[in-house]
């Protein structure tokens, strides 16, 4: 393999990784604090893409950035509803029931999306400002949008790190992940914290979906495809660990990208093999915080 091609694939893989990180960071925070393995997280990601498409097409002249903001807010509202009405009832129940309940969300969200948006694949144009490419050594054309995604991922990672480690709210989330009862005993309104974190997680999934829109065919199945990869990242990184999710996203993103280059017919299985290997050897994840 030529070195320039290797670099090119590495950068493409990195943009893929950052997209995965946006989604996975939301799930790992939710799973860490609320202890809910949210199967519907992929569906919230899908909604992010659909809402972005919807706002761009129903409000002509709207910039991509604003459409993204609107759609992220819409996904946040849906997340709030999901947390506030059904999930709140089952915090004390087994993971099995929680998984099954969040699976019922997938059924509802998918079918509602089909009802409103149809089953055709939709495509979102790359925003004009970033619709171009520049030439890398070796005459490879690198799309500006991929670099933009990487930048978004890094900025969000930094903001989340700041938010989680440098603010009072972040400290509360960390404390809650470690010991909910103690936090509650200290007079903190834990249910409200749960709602806030679930909204934050949903917003991150929605942001990932909106940003993925121009890169992928927007379709109802995109949530189910991504959620297993996202669970893999959360497990490999260690549930609740932001740093772990970041490193695991890069690992999985690059593995997928180079997998497709070297073993096109079996690349699909790489993520599953990785998650099996981690679960069998270090089920607590490679970078668990606790």
């Amino acid at each position: 393999m030529e070195f320039s091609y290797f670099i090119y694939q590495l950068i493409i893989g990195l943009s893929h990784s950052m997209l995965l990180f946006l989604i996975a960071s939301g799930l790992t925070i939710i799973f860490g604090l609320l202890n809910i393995p949210n199967f519907a997280h992929g569906s919230l990601y899908m909604l992010g893409a659909y809402f972005t498409y919807y706002f761009l097409h129903s409000l002509p002249g709207l910039s991509f950035g604003l459409a993204l903001v609107f759609s992220v807010l819409a996904v946040g509202i849906i997340g709030a509803i999901l947390e506030f009405i059904p999930l709140r009832k089952i915090y004390e129940r087994s993971h099995a029931l929680q998984l099954l309940m969040t699976f019922s969300f997938i059924l509802m969200i998918d079918d509602a999306t089909k009802y409103f948006a149809g089953t055709d694949f939709l495509s979102i144009a790359i925003p004009k400002l970033m619709d171009g490419s520049f030439t890398l050594p070796g005459d490879r054309e690198m799309p500006v949008y991929s670099i933009f995604i990487i930048a978004c991922g890094l900025v969000v990672a930094y903001l989340l790190w700041l938010g989680l480690y440098k603010t009072r709210l972040g400290k509360l989330v960390q404390a809650g992940t470690a010991n909910k009862e103690m936090l509650s005993a200290l007079g903190i309104n834990v249910p409200r914290l749960f709602t806030l974190v679930f909204i934050l997680g949903s917003v991150l999934a929605g942001l990932g979906g909106g940003l993925a829109g121009p890169l992928k065919a927007v379709s109802v199945g995109m949530g189910e495809t991504v959620i297993i990869t996202i669970f893999a990242i959360v497990i490999v990184g260690g549930v609740g660990s932001l740093k772990g999710a970041f490193i695991a996203s890069i690992l999985v993103g690059e593995l997928n990208t180079f997998g497709v280059v070297f073993f096109p017919s079996f690349a699909m299985a790489f993520t599953y093999i990785l998650v099996i290997a981690v679960l069998l050897t270090k089920p607590e994840g490679l970078f668990r915080i606790k």
């Binding site: 998984l99 299985a269 099996i276």
Partner: peptide, 22 residues
């Protein structure tokens, strides 16, 4: 057999997805 709960669910899921890919 060495895992429980959520981790067991995901491990069985990953194995079945390998069948799917094959």
């Amino acid at each position: 057999m060495r895992l429980r709960g959520f981790y067991f669910a995901i491990l069985t899921l990953a194995f079945s997805q390998i069948f799917f890919v094959v």
